[in-house]
Design a protein around this nucleic acid. Structure first.
Length: 578
RNA sequence: GCCCUCGUAGCUCAGAGGACAGAGCGGCGGACUUCUAAUCCGUUGGUCGCAGGUUCGAUUCCUGCCGGGGGCGCCA
């Protein structure tokens, strides 16, 4: 275990148990990065209260039983009772060297692997994906990749909108246009145009509207011919989704599809069970679940409607079915919903209802990873249903175009194909990283210039660090896998870089627990920053002697591996050159 | 009306009850015969919305208020 924070936490924990008895087993040693040393433990202060002793006295007792001679150059008690740790350069160097050639870079696999269904992306059939979809797709994919790397059993669930009343008009429109028509082709390339055309006909032509309504009935009734057309519609949309996912480098495939229609067969049963158990009752003609803890206007209880007065089911019913399915069939330990923040109340009600119905045992934790709204520069929410929203592919194309302009001026010597490839990696990386680098639950203003900025905490900055490292190996004609070290810490920039490299495991563990990819972004940015300082101050190929050169090559190699791994967990590509 | 969420430097944002609140951008001043300057170094910049409370200690937890955003019965 190369991570100093874990090592020190373990040592402090056993020291405090030794000093104060086994009652304190499990006490968090509160080891944190420090501005006054490498790490500090804050545990003595809260412990002092519990033990009714002076904080510094408690700290002294802990330090007395502490054996960190191998790791630390000094351990000091400071201020009101902080324990400051300064690591030995030799230890830092050796731990960093142990990361060479380690595909996990010292990151331990989860001690208790969980089954984790993760629900994200969820675009609608015959609808363009917009910036909101982009965010849940990108954040969800990063979480899926990270949880997977940490050793959990991740089950991706793409809950696409493939059912509901609009499908009557969509199917009718498809029938009129013909399955092989140019109009049908729009489902693959420009789904909103297809949707709008269907909508326009529905609004303007009463005969068409009538056929659309009858078509909905036929669809729900399981009419084979109608179902065939419905499948065709889904197939066309799937190819659109997959094209977007491929372009963006998102891991979702057809195997992960679990759309709304998947749950149709259980909806009647869900309602019947709820009604029989007395959890749901008829109100104003609709079957509703009322829970005491949820009240709305004038203190009236807010219903979760599971069956409308016309007999149709709602997304609440479907969502209850997802909970039940994920617990019973997927054996979930934790269920992750990467869904817009405005759905918070709805999901809470779904979870509470599922608990009451016995579909969600206390051992299973549902988590809503709230995705904040993306605002336009006018400060208003970008929504697909009202008005125009920016087409996702337009946004991506624009990002790639702007990146291409930069590459054209900085690397005129490269051929067009190579420049285009770089522009795509950088442009898409910039867009994805912008979504990932701020906390997922806050809303933010969508701004081309900011997300495409080539300095600061951005994708291109991290990619540039990768490109420069690869350039070193190319220029030196060095096979990265032949780098052996050993590492010797000389310059402050070398020490800072090495120390930072050892912290990857702690960050990833945190991301896995809190489901916050922006913490990985912050870590990688700091790492890239530490590297560029090192790059600036410590020549690698032109190092003063062979030993220093080997040491710096080893540091460089581990940095490359960490950046590439981190970026891959975010779903951002790591270019060969920029 | 009730509930959720946010309010931190001019701007965009971090911040695990702990030491003097941190980055980036912008501004200002430096560094390219260089392993890629899409870079680096220095500097400037804050009543952490307001008022109480809990605590040895609060940007962090609790309560109230003010302000922005969102949600609150048959769209999903």
């Amino acid at each position: 275990m190369p991570d100093p924070q874990s090592v020190l936490a373990e040592r402090v924990h056993s020291a405090l148990v030794t000093a104060f008895g086994p009652d304190l087993t499990g006490t968090d040693p509160v080891v944190r990065p420090s501005q006054f040393a490498d790490y500090q433990s804050n545990v003595a202060l809260p412990l002092a209260k519990r033990l009714r002793r002076a904080p510094r006295e408690v700290a002294a007792a802990i330090v007395g039983g502490l054996d960190v001679r191998a790791e630390c150059e000094s351990v000091e008690i400071s201020g009101p009772g902080f324990i400051n740790f300064t690591l030995r350069d030799s230890w830092v160097a050796e731990q960093t060297r142990s990361l060479l050639g380690d595909p996990r870079l010292g990151v331990p696999a989860a001690a208790h692997p969980q089954n984790i269904p993760i629900d994200y992306s969820a675009p609608n059939v015959a609808k363009e994906m917009h910036v909101g979809h982009l965010r849940t797709t990108v954040v969800g994919d990063a979480l899926a990749r990270t949880l997977d790397f940490l050793g959990h059993r991740v089950i991706r669930q793409n809950h696409i909108g493939d059912w509901g009343t609009p499908f009557g008009m969509l199917i009718e429109h498809l029938l009129e246009a013909g399955e092989d028509s140019a109009e049908a082709e729009k489902l693959r390339t420009d789904p909103n145009a297809f949707y709008k055309a269907a909508r326009a006909k529905f609004d303007a032509d009463p005969d068409f509207a009538g056929r659309a309504r009858r078509r909905v009935v036929a669809l729900q009734g399981g009419d084979p011919e109608t179902l065939r057309h419905w499948h065709e519609l889904i197939e066309l949309s799937k190819s659109y989704f997959n094209r977007v996912y491929r372009t963006l480098g998102v891991t979702l495939t057809d195997d992960d599809l679990a759309g709304e229609s998947t749950y149709n067969r259980w909806l009647a049963e869900i309602c019947a069970e709820l009604e029989d158990a007395g959890i749901a009752r008829i109100s104003e003609g609709a079957l509703c679940v009322f829970l005491d803890e949820f009240t709305g206007r004038e203190g009236k209880p807010v219903p979760l409607i599971v069956r409308k007065s016309d007999g149709g089911y709602t997304y609440g019913t479907t969502d209850l079915a997802t909970v039940r399915y994920r617990v019973q069939e997927l054996k979930a330990d934790r269920i992750v919903y990467v869904i817009g923040a405005p759905q918070g109340l709805h999901l809470q009600m779904v979870f509470a209802t599922a608990r009451k119905a016995g579909w969600l045992p206390d051992t299973v934790e549902p988590v809503h990873v709230q995705i904040g709204n993306v605002l336009g520069t006018d400060g208003k929410i970008l929504r697909s249903r009202s008005g125009e929203s920016m087409r996702l592919m337009t946004l991506v194309d624009e990002a790639v175009r702007r990146a291409g302009e930069v590459v054209a001026t900085t690397r005129p010597e490269l051929d067009d194909a190579t420049r285009a490839h770089i522009a795509e990696q950088v442009g898409i990386g910039a867009v994805k990283y912008a979504d990932l680098s701020v906390s997922h639950d806050t809303e933010y203003v969508f701004d081309f210039d900011r997300m495409l900025a080539l300095t600061g905490n951005t994708g291109p900055y991290l990619q540039y660090a990768v490109a420069r490292i690869r350039s070193i190996f190319r220029r030196g004609g060095i096979d990265p896998s032949a780098v052996r070290g050993p590492i010797a810490i000389g310059e402050p920039a070398e020490r800072a870089l090495a120390l930072h490299l050892l912290g990857l495991g702690a960050v990833l563990e945190q991301v896995g627990e809190l489901l916050e990819p922006h913490r990985l972004c912050a870590y990688l940015y700091e790492l890239a920053s530490a590297f560029t300082t090192f790059y600036d101050q410590c020549p690698v190929l032109r190092a003063p002697d062979a030993a220093v050169r080997d040491s710096r090559l080893a540091l460089t190699q581990v940095t490359l591996d960490a950046l590439v791994l981190g970026l891959s967990l975010l779903g951002v590509s790591a270019p060969e050159q920029m």
